[in-house]
Write a protein that binds this DNA or RNA. Structure first.
Length: 353
DNA sequence: CAAACGTGGCT
DNA sequence: TAGCCAAGTTT
């Protein structure tokens, strides 16, 4: 399809999205921030986080200078927390090694923490008019359908073929504005017309040439991810409570909820009771309602236990240090707390006292 | 290179 | 409802 890019650019100009919060700017900082947040995350989810970050950290220098805990607290709830740590590191690298200005080339961008090939292309095309293709979920879906690309796009072989195809479709001599429109068009087509469930082929500029549309295979393309059973893990969480405050513990930097503040955990009931005693609680440990939380790759059954504590007569364990903190339930916002733990504590806040 | 890595929206 | 998956990157 020799006129793929021209058709896409024309479609985007007329029917694409033009008023998202991170559009209508060439500020690499704002574009970068949005692109990181939008990785594996829907637009509607990102919008309030993007606004919060921009208000608190108006430029890359402000973000670089912030304490890591502040960045994590602001990111809490968005998920994939490695993104937040890389975001912070990236800001510091840009300030310390690039004089506070994002590099303009795809290759240099892709060397920065948290910026891979697709995000680098997005930033380079939106901020600098570079001729580089993205390859996100939207593009994979559009390419699979329009060109009839078979196979699960998460598979390396298929993904490589799609990168090659996507590169070949780039507009050859386009202005900066056209390059931005092309990249945005790829996303918009996938996000608004060529959606997973019921694609609106009637309004699609590629309908007459689209393999999936012509053959009625919209449902089979792109090829679905192979099904895998999700294992279940189980954990006991300690709600050590002193009046309106609970004790939180810093999680290790990597692994699930890496770098967030969460409730102390144990692998079984007895171990949790022992931890409660070690912290200095001499009261009873009582069961709260169990619940489960589903991640992408496993299900977590959570057994919360409540124990009373009195810091007034408590021991050294009552003191805050780098990895433990007593937090008022009204003040959870200033700590990066995992979403389900936050929900648990918030519901407790309503029912206690 | 397959697996790890969150959460919420949608069907 | 339970399953699928979204503006992917890192290890």
């Amino acid at each position: 399809m020799p006129d793929f890019s021209a058709r896409l650019i024309a479609w985007q100009r007329q029917h694409g999205r033009h008023d998202l919060p991170w559009q209508n700017t060439r500020d690499p900082y704002r574009i970068w921030l949005s692109e990181i947040m939008l990785q594996q995350t829907q637009v509607s989810t990102v919008i309030p986080y993007y606004a919060k970050f921009l208000a608190r950290f108006p430029d890359v220098a402000a973000l670089a200078a912030a304490p890591s805990d502040d960045v994590m607290a602001l990111w809490a709830g968005l998920g994939y927390y490695t993104r937040a740590r890389n975001l912070h590191r990236c800001a510091q690298v840009v300030v310390e090694r690039h004089g506070g200005a994002f590099p303009a080339s795809v290759d240099e961008l892709a060397e920065l923490p948290g910026i891979g090939r697709s995000t680098a292309a997005a930033i380079a095309s939106f901020a600098f008019g570079a001729r580089a293709t993205i390859l996100d979920g939207n593009v994979k879906r559009v390419l699979a359908r329009v060109f009839g690309v078979e196979g699960f796009p998460g598979e390396k072989k298929v993904e490589n073929a799609m990168w090659t195809l996507a590169e070949s479709l780039l507009p050859s001599n386009a202005s900066n504005a056209e390059v931005s429109g092309y990249t945005q068009g790829l996303m918009d087509l996938g996000a608004t017309l060529c959606v997973r469930g019921k694609p609106d082929c009637a309004r699609c500029p590629f309908a007459p040439d689209c393999v999936a549309n012509v053959t009625g295979r919209q449902r089979e393309l792109p090829t679905a991810r192979p099904k895998k059973a999700v294992p279940t893990r189980r954990t006991w969480m300690l709600v050590l409570r002193d009046g309106n405050a609970v004790m939180l513990e810093r999680r290790p930097p990597s692994g699930i909820w890496g770098g967030l503040w969460s409730l102390p955990e144990a692998a079984d009931e007895a171990s949790l009771a022992e931890r409660a005693r070690a912290f200095g609680s001499d009261g009873e440990v009582s069961a709260l309602a169990p619940f489960s939380h589903v991640f992408t790759h496993f299900k977590l059954d959570i057994e919360p236990r409540l124990a009373a504590f009195d810091r007034g007569v408590g021991a050294l364990a009552a003191l805050n240090d780098a990895d433990t903190a007593w937090v008022a339930l009204d003040d959870l916002d200033s700590f990066g707390v995992p979403a389900p733990v936050r929900k648990l504590l918030t519901s407790l806040h309503g029912s206690l006292i």
